[in-house]
Nucleic acid binder design. Structure first.
Length: 426
RNA sequence: GGGGGGUUUCCCGAGCGGUCAAAGGGGUCAGACUGUAAAUCUGAUGGCUCAGCCUUCGCAGGUUCGAAUCCUGCACCCCCCA
């Protein structure tokens, strides 16, 4: 497989240090490459996804990937792509973050692939023993400040009169540059990949390697995951989309991709999914013919959810999607409902409220918090916006009885399109 | 210190003695349409034991058969003069 050609049609290559040389060099196979992930938070998010998939694709093409957790660089803070100086994280946080992202990184790479088995490293391991003086003499001496000042990550900050850049962040590129050199000498790593904002750091590493007599190293950057309008992807009103199921449920993850704009979905399929070129191109054609079908979004959501959360996670996300978008609810278990409606408010009522005449629908909606007053509940029902287990209720006199339970003890109420609440009868 | 204007239901904003739970707009909520999109259209929008009743128009009193609307006092906000 020609990895360079694949990455090219996937539009995953933003810039390389040697367009003419790299395709042939990679086609020979067996190269070692790395990408770094700084522990700025306790998990990987969608923004980390592109370089991560780069590593994965390289490995499938027979190269050896190294995922680097930035235990050391994370202590400094990368100025790349940032307009303001960042606050330093405390050491315990960084260590916890390194542990969290390391676990997640493992999931995407194959660590038993013989000669091209993936490797996970933490740059804190080799940075922790350096002394300041020794680092300045051995590494710092190789960095001309005038070159450093010309890097976008620094230059963008020098023009600002409010804060500028600290010496600490200014030094960041030395650490990342040294990582590359270190990985070259310890693992024979010759290629670094990263987001387009990493260009300056990558070339800094290449320059350092040359000055220190390590020969020629290479770099490839991939585009940042942005929407057609230039804004970052992976953000919702509720916050970032994370890869960890604890931070973003498989359902929410699935829904995020399912709702990607028509204009952006082709790009996402190329950059992130593992669908074949044929399939992606036929999806493009289908989308051009009838965007309303949204086959592209569905395939994207399925592929990425399976990749991140497995078959089981995908199945749950799909089930939750069907239910939350109106499929009638019946014959589910309390456990199923609890999972599907994890973020939905739930309130308790005594079981015997269902016996006798039962529980009036107006009281049920009010109790569940779907209506602020009985008048509002009545209005919702009259206007056709009230549902029990996703079946519309039109009668104000309707009473809930034991038959209305969707599972052992739960009735699912809904007001309008999306406002759900559970009533649990104990 | 003197003079003038204001305070209305989630917001803006009409109302200036009864027909006012209070125009209009925004927002919000439903519904239709739709691609789990955007736009659009329709309806609703104080509460309740709902053909009725109760509570709302800065706060407290008063006039009146009847007040968001008139009078008195108080609080806060804005403008002009000093």
């Amino acid at each position: 497989m020609d990895i360079f050609a694949e990455l090219t049609w996937r539009q995953s290559i933003h810039q390389t240090t040697d367009d003419a040389f790299l395709p042939g060099w990679l086609a020979a196979g067996g190269r070692t490459l790395y990408a770094g992930f700084d522990p700025t938070s306790n998990g990987l998010h969608v923004g980390n996804f592109v370089p991560l998939m780069m590593l994965r694709r390289f490995q499938r093409a027979g190269h050896k990937p190294i995922a680097l957790a930035g235990g050391a660089t994370g202590m400094i803070g990368d100025p790349s792509g940032k307009s303001d100086e960042r606050n330093l994280l405390c050491e315990e946080t960084i260590q916890a973050n390194v542990a969290a992202i390391s676990t997640e990184l493992r999931q995407f790479l194959d660590f038993d692939a013989g000669p091209h088995a993936a490797q996970l490293v933490n740059n804190y391991q080799w940075m922790k023993d350096w002394s300041y003086l020794r680092f300045l003499r051995e590494i710092g001496k190789n960095f001309p400040v005038n070159v450093m000042l010309a890097k976008d990550s620094v230059r963008g900050r020098l023009d600002r009169d409010d804060g500028g850049i600290s010496y600490t962040e200014f030094s960041y590129m030395l650490l990342q540059a040294y990582d590359f050199v270190k990985l070259h000498s310890d693992y024979g790593c010759e290629l670094q990949v990263g987001g387009s904002d990493q260009w300056g750091n990558i070339t800094a590493g290449i320059d350092l390697a040359r000055r220190m007599g390590h020969g020629q190293l290479y770099g490839i950057t991939c585009p940042l995951l942005t929407k057609r309008d230039g804004t970052k992807m992976g953000k919702t009103e509720a916050g970032a989309i994370w890869l960890s199921p604890q931070k973003t449920s498989p359902y929410a993850f699935y829904q995020y991709w399912y709702n990607v704009e028509d204009d952006d979905v082709g790009n996402c399929l190329r950059l992130l999914s593992e669908l074949s070129r044929d399939e992606i191109e036929s999806l493009d054609a289908a989308r051009a013919a009838d965007a309303g079908r949204r086959d592209s979004q569905q395939r994207l959501a399925e592929d990425l959810t399976r990749l991140v959360h497995g078959d089981q996670g995908l199945a749950k996300a799909r089930q939750a999607s069907q239910v939350l978008f109106g499929a009638e609810i019946d014959d589910l278990s309390d456990a199923d409902l609890a999972e599907i409606f994890a973020d939905v408010p739930s309130s308790q009522l005594a079981r015997d409220r269902l016996s006798g005449d039962g529980l009036n629908i107006i009281d049920a909606l009010t109790h569940a918090g779907l209506a602020n007053s009985k008048a509002e509940a009545r209005r919702t029902i009259t206007q056709g916006g009230a549902y029990v287990n996703n079946r519309r209720v039109e009668d104000i006199e309707r009473n809930l009885k034991a038959d209305d339970l969707a599972s052992e003890s739960i009735v699912v109420l809904r007001a309008g399109k999306k406002r759900y609440a559970l009533l649990s009868f104990q």
